[in-house]
Simulated assay, not measured.
Amino acid sequence: MSALLALLDVHGDGTTWVGPASGPEGKRAFGGQFMGQSLAAAARTVAPQKQPTSMHLQFLRGGEAGDAVDYAVTDVFDGRTAAARRVDATQAGRLLTTATVSFAAPMAGPEHGRRDVMPGDPEALPRTGPAGPAPSMPLDEIDIRLDDDRSTGEFVRRLWWRVTVPVPDDALLHTVIAAYVCDVYMIDPALAVHGHSMVARTHRSGTTDSSIWFHRRVHADRWNLLETRSPAAARGRGVITGSLIGSDGVITATLAQEGLIAEREQPAAD
């Protein structure tokens, strides 16, 4: 099994699940690990015909990348066509994240959400990786290409990605992978608007909460475009909104994230 698929393969007894460590030891765990593993744990307790429709996760404390994570899943609701779960992630008894995940069986209804023209060709871009160091991500298995755009005066981040290892034809697994990948440096555009970056460490930065609404099936082994922008920032926090778009122009998910982008305190003069 690939490193990515092994990382997202949680094991448990029906209410408590364990997510593998991402490594390396001594580093802070990547937030996408909690997104992907929390979603995987919640889905293990729901009938397969009910697919994820939304996920909302709060980051309360940083985690250790070198340690496994325990996930406690609570049944919130089980109906004929819908279900809801709460997922609490802990390490050594310390609560790190808490999430709510909604599931529903598909139903017929009006549909919209498609790009007629995609902005650019990922194959024409260099393989850049994420917008900063990502020591716990198996980047040899995820092709990431950035194409930031300021042509309209607004900063728009276009992050193309696809998984380069074989992925089983399992719609849930592809959705879990998307939840994992789409967290990578997503708060960075709130700093980029002002000419800064998370990698420069000029500001205290990190995700405080993240939300995803899943509309359609994701194909993680094909090109996906995560297009994000920051509509507002104040009081040391910024908000990012985005769309996940498949290579066929169909919008597969809508995302929103809030993060800390506070100025670092300057050391007192002697």
Rank of each mutant, 00 (worst) to 15 (best):
L4W: 08
L5E: 10
G14H: 10
W17K: 00
V18P: 00
V18S: 08
A21Y: 02
G23Y: 05
G26F: 05
F30D: 04
G31S: 07
G32P: 08
F34T: 08
Q37S: 07
A42C: 11
V46R: 00
V46W: 07
V46Q: 07
A47S: 14
T53G: 03
L60T: 10
L60E: 12
A65F: 06
A65P: 10
A68E: 15
F77N: 14
D78K: 04
T81I: 09
A92V: 01
G93M: 05
R94E: 13
L95N: 09
V101H: 01
A105T: 15
A108T: 15
V117P: 04
P119C: 01
P122Q: 07
G132D: 11
P138C: 04
D140A: 13
D143T: 06
I144A: 02
T152G: 14
F155G: 05
F155C: 01
R158V: 12
R158A: 11
L159F: 03
R162A: 11
R162K: 15
V167D: 11
A171Q: 12
L173W: 03
L173V: 10
L173K: 03
T175K: 02
C182Y: 00
D183S: 03
V184T: 15
M186H: 03
P189A: 10
V199D: 14
T202M: 08
E227L: 07
A234L: 09
G238T: 06
G242M: 03
G242W: 06
S243I: 00
D248L: 01
G249T: 08
V250P: 04
I251H: 05
Q257G: 04
I261T: 14
E263I: 01
P267H: 10
D270K: 10
